[in-house]
């Protein structure tokens, strides 16, 4: 019985250490995460890409909305 208890304790400890190691590793990747470093690299050109894409998708969404409205009117008439 006692032997079983220490076995459990060991197992718990090993799980904990694994989790800790995993969390440290996660923090390490977070500090140089690809997205964050991408957005700040190369004179921050990716920020421009994001801005232009936002405008483009905004305009396309507007065109799609108009298209839907016209389609609805066509169905009604």
């Amino acid at each position: 019985m006692k032997k079983n208890g220490t076995h459990m304790k060991n197992k718990l400890l090993s799980i904990l250490t694994t989790l800790f190691a995993a969390s440290v590793q996660a923090q390490e990747t977070a500090s140089n995460e690809t997205m964050a470093s991408t957005m700040r690299s190369n004179g921050k050109i990716y920020v421009v890409v994001a801005v232009v894409l936002t405008i483009l998708f905004g305009l396309i969404a507007y065109v799609i909305r108009l298209d839907r409205k016209v389609s609805r009117l066509e169905k009604e008439s």
Binding site: I45, V49, V52, L53, L56, I64, D67, R68, S71
Partner: peptide
């Protein structure tokens, strides 16, 4: 709404034009 293939092509090509155009 009629979602023709060329409308999807327009969105895809323009996205490529912006991303590729600024980064390549």
């Amino acid at each position: 709404m009629q979602f023709h293939w060329w409308k999807i092509a327009a969105i895809a090509l323009l996205t490529y034009a912006v991303v590729g155009g600024l980064l390549l």
